[in-house]
Amino acid sequence: MADDKRQALRQAAEAKVWIFDLDNTLYPAHCNLFDQIDRRMGTFIQNFLGIDAAEARALQKQYFRAHGTTMRGLMTHHGMDPQAFLDFVHDIDLSVLPAAHVLDEALARLPGRKIIFTNGSVRHAERITEHMGIDRHFEAIFDIVASDFVPKPDAGPYRTIVAQHGIDPAQAVMVEDIVRNLEPAAAMGMITVLVRPADAGAGAGAEAPPDYVRHLVHDLPDWLHLVSDTLAAPGQVPGPAPGG
């Protein structure tokens, strides 16, 4: 088992490109940052359509299920300006984000190019990574605008990011907190990493991940340290990461 683990980690360490989701992936889900976004979506819909909070909430979730993002549903059915939506919903308080010293160190040690792939906006990703002090590690942010407002897990944006950034999927790792967003990456040949908090509980989403998920990770900085350690000491089984 130790040999299998070491080999899987080494394969990830030898990847040429790392593709990271943003929300609830690069920062811990317990920050509840997306809850702020979720509430602002509801407020935007109320104001935009002139409906009450209950109606807005129902429509928000209906569009998310049907179109992959609430924004896409509003664009499709109401001709909404997506930029106005993105600007409003991402105007959030980042003070809840913790210091990211361990993640910063882990990204610095990790070989390979690093790109953010998000259903949010470039500005949203920039604000978060700058606040966390990790923006220097990423060469590009591929956002919902770059994907022509088609969200993950539609396969189109995956093909676009690979083409635009010269990525060989067989030499890439994709890191996500939403399991369905990893399926297209796995189909292209990428190593897939699902980030799920250890205290996720026994509810929906806590079941064993599907076969297309290569690694299930509870602490991303700790796991990235383990990946780097396989190159630093390839003959040893990785131990706990610094600060992990």
Rank of each mutant, 00 (worst) to 15 (best):
T129S: 01
P28V: 02
V173G: 12
L231P: 09
T69E: 00
H215Y: 12
R10C: 05
A2K: 15
R40M: 13
A241R: 11
A58W: 06
Q36W: 09
L107M: 06
R136T: 14
A15L: 04
P221N: 07
D87V: 10
K61R: 15
G189Y: 10
R196A: 03
A208C: 00
V227K: 03
A170W: 00
R10W: 01
V173Q: 06
Y63W: 14
V193T: 04
M190Y: 09
S121C: 05
V217C: 07
D168S: 11
A172P: 13
D87R: 12
V122Y: 13
F48W: 05
Q36F: 12
R159C: 10
D168Y: 03
A56K: 09
G120Q: 03
Q46M: 15
A12D: 01
Y63M: 15
D148H: 06
G201Q: 00
A172W: 11
G243M: 14
R123C: 00
G189M: 06
V193S: 01
A163F: 10
G166E: 08
P98D: 01
L110I: 14
A241H: 12
D3K: 13
D211W: 02
D38R: 09
R123D: 04
T129V: 03
L49W: 12
G244R: 05
P153H: 11
K16D: 15
R65V: 15
V213G: 11
A233I: 07
A125C: 06
P242V: 12
Q164G: 08
A187Y: 00
H215G: 14
M71I: 05
G120Y: 05
R10L: 11
G243H: 14
K114I: 08
D4K: 11
D4C: 10
M1L: 15
Y158D: 05
A200L: 05
H101Y: 12
D3E: 14
G203L: 02
V193K: 00
E126S: 01
V96H: 03
Y158W: 08
D199K: 10
V102Y: 01
T160L: 12
K16N: 14
Q60R: 14
E14H: 10
Y63K: 09
R214A: 15
R10P: 01
D222T: 14
S95R: 04
